[in-house]
């Protein structure tokens, strides 16, 4: 479904991603972990097509297409979804209006009938159950005044509505309380099918207890420094990152991931 080959990307002339290789197949769950500033969100945003990042080398093939040639909205309509680490507030536009427009854009793209507000309301009610989101959030402006956890839950509501083929969840767990984490992670699991795939970016094992990855990749200094199965996450939890980023200096705090 997704093949990233030797991906290099820069922002404001600073190279952040320095040759990422990653292959994701249908039905798989991949976890990306790694120290702060190692480039995890950068990778997520490059996949979503954020205009500020410049891809300087490499390629990304998604469903047989050159993903990097598609505009961000085209990627989304083709089934790529990124849950933002820091969701954006859109004042004056209600969650329901926003979700319906996004949903209908995708329907149009697929050559399907658009849903009118009433039809969409029913669908939204159904999908909101996946993340146990209260109806009162639908009439409020997108993310405006939402708590940190509510914003994260709202990201997964969007995922539930848009039903992406490839979802990249950037630290969706951070900001969620223990119960919310269970609900949201449960929601993500409900959305997983043999035909789609998920990349979860996280710092914590506890999310991976719910969303169990097939592969764990450790990003450090803009490269994948280590790969393994779900045990790797447990190992990281107990040992930290130093042994990966600086294997020769045991216990060294001299971590310079971005350099």
């Amino acid at each position: 479904m997704l093949e990233i080959r030797n991906l290099h990307a820069a922002i404001n002339g600073n190279e952040i991603l320095k040759g990422i290789n990653l292959t994701v197949k249908k039905g798989e769950i991949h976890a990306i972990m790694g120290p702060n500033g190692s480039g995890k969100s950068t990778l997520a945003k490059v996949l979503a097509g954020h205009p500020q990042y410049e891809v300087t080398a490499g390629e990304v093939i998604y469903e047989g297409k050159n993903l990097l040639e598609l505009a961000p909205d085209e990627r989304a309509r083709e089934g790529v979804f990124m849950a933002f680490q820091y969701p954006i507030e859109i004042p004056g536009v209600s969650n329901a209006q926003f979700l319906r427009l996004a949903y209908n854009e995708k329907r149009k793209h697929l050559g399907e009938e658009e849903l009118d507000p009433l039809e969409f309301k029913d669908l939204l009610k159904e999908r909101a159950k996946v993340v146990e989101m209260d109806a009162s959030f639908m009439t409020r402006s997108v993310n405006e005044g939402f708590s940190g956890g509510e914003k994260k839950r709202n990201e997964i509501l969007q995922m539930a509505v848009l039903e992406p083929k490839l979802a990249v969840l950037d630290e969706t767990d951070s900001g969620l309380d223990i119960d919310a984490l269970r609900v949201v992670a449960g929601g993500v699991n409900q959305l997983l099918t043999p035909d789609n795939a998920i990349i979860v970016v996280t710092h914590y094992q506890r999310l991976l207890n719910y969303i169990v990855p097939d592969y764990v990749h450790v990003l450090a200094g803009g490269r994948i420094a280590r790969e393994g199965g779900k045990e790797l996450a447990l190992e990281l939890e107990s040992k930290g990152y130093d042994w990966i980023t600086n294997p020769n200096v045991a216990g060294s705090a001299n971590l310079n991931a971005a350099s």
């Binding site: 979503a48 961000p72 909205d73 989304a76 990124m82 004056g92 536009v93 926003f98 854009e105």
Partner: peptide, 25 residues
């Protein structure tokens, strides 16, 4: 904000209208 809308499949033109509407709202 525009990128956020685009990342959900909303084309830039529609996104600009939507944000303008939100501003007036």
């Amino acid at each position: 904000e525009l990128f956020y809308l685009q990342a959900r499949g909303i084309n830039p033109e529609l996104g600009r209208s939507l944000l303008t509407y939100g501003f007036a709202e």
